[in-house]
Amino acid sequence: MQTMTSQQALMAALRRAMAADERVFFIGEGVATKNPELLAAFGAERVRNTPLAEASIVGCAVGAAAMGLRPVVDLLYSPFLMLAMDALVNSAGKLGALSGGQFEFPMVVLAQTGAGWAIGGQHNHNLEALFAHVSGLQVLMPSTPSDTAGLLTGALSQPLPSLLFSDIGLAHAPGDVNGDELLLPGCAAVRRRGDALTLVGYGKTVGHCLTAALTLQAEGVEAEVIDLRSLKPLDTATVLTSVRKTGRLLCVTEASGLCGLAAELCAVVAEEAFADLKAAPQRLTGPDAPALASWPLEQAAVPQPEQIAARARALMNTQPLNV
């Protein structure tokens, strides 16, 4: 057991994957410069700096994956994914199905997202729900170093393209890492047990939900907290099991609420567990606005623990539905 940050855990998992499988290689903007130990261990053919040309980087990786290699691509920040949409969406996402299974794309694209460094809208944009709409892509966003390592390992073990988003606000948060994690996409984690209401989040909102749950506990309200970890595939079974027990759901995301993961979960719960609800499912999300390069304004756009607790109190005070 070691204590690592999410970035350290990610690189440790990548090193293990590269040592175990010579098909795995690492490319991106500055990856060799920033990871000299990987360069020394595996050489310039498998750890390559690239030009600042995202469409070309991902296009190269998609072609390599189609030919049987397992590329890991670092595009740095999530808005840069927009420059590689054709390769990600029309090739990696679709060609497996359009070719009748003749091609597979076992590749992982890394990108940082979310508030925490006040780097503005040029580098900060929570786009995860956009990619959940793309058939063929897996979308992952862990909240702990251990899950970061496990999801990278799990994604590389599958024949599907994955986007692994790292929450910038958690980049230097330490956590315990075993060193042999394997976490297949599609499995949420129950971080805290409770029977009064269900709080669901991913990335940094998981920690905010846990903090809010402690506040609520002092008031006699036991909240269950679920960490999605995988946004596509989405573990609706774990959420439904919890909501059928608690009867109340509050989904918390930093991303905008419009057509987002919170809206999807509220819809699933309304469709599948309506008879068990004591109140209408609710969501607490970020605004539909660009991120600002100001620490106070950036933080104001992220649902904070006190806001979560306040919304949970209101949800607890809602009159039961007439089912």
Rank of each mutant, 00 (worst) to 15 (best):
M4K: 12
T5Y: 10
S6R: 12
Q7R: 15
Q8E: 15
A12F: 09
R16K: 07
A17N: 09
A17K: 02
A19H: 10
D21P: 01
E22Y: 08
F26S: 00
A32H: 09
T33N: 13
E37I: 00
E37T: 13
F42V: 02
P51D: 06
L52I: 15
A53R: 09
A53T: 11
A55L: 05
C60R: 12
A61G: 01
A65P: 05
A65K: 06
A65L: 08
G68D: 03
L69W: 14
V72F: 07
D74C: 07
Y77R: 15
Y77P: 01
F80S: 02
A84S: 09
A87S: 15
L88N: 04
G96N: 12
A97V: 14
L98Y: 14
S99M: 02
G101E: 03
G101H: 05
Q102F: 11
T113I: 12
G114H: 07
A115N: 01
A115C: 11
A118E: 09
H123R: 06
N124K: 14
L130E: 03
A132S: 14
H133I: 09
S135E: 13
G136Y: 13
Q138D: 13
Q138M: 15
M141E: 11
P142C: 02
S146W: 06
T148R: 06
L151W: 07
L152A: 02
L156S: 01
P159H: 11
P161G: 08
L163W: 09
F165D: 00
G169N: 09
A171T: 10
A171G: 00
H172Y: 13
G175Y: 09
N178K: 14
L182M: 14
L182G: 02
L183R: 14
P185M: 10
P185Q: 05
C187Q: 15
A189R: 15
R191D: 07
A196Q: 11
V200H: 00
K204A: 15
T211Y: 08
T215R: 15
Q217F: 10
A218K: 14
E219K: 10
A223D: 07
T238H: 03
V239W: 00
L240N: 05
R244I: 02
K245V: 07
V252A: 07
E254G: 09
C259D: 13
A270I: 03
E272G: 00
E272V: 00
A275K: 08
L277D: 01
K278P: 00
P281E: 03
G286V: 01
G286M: 01
P287V: 05
D288W: 07
A289N: 02
A289D: 10
L297N: 04
E298G: 00
A300Q: 09
A301D: 01
Q304R: 11
A309P: 00
R311K: 12
A314F: 12
N322L: 13
N322F: 10
V323K: 13
V323E: 09
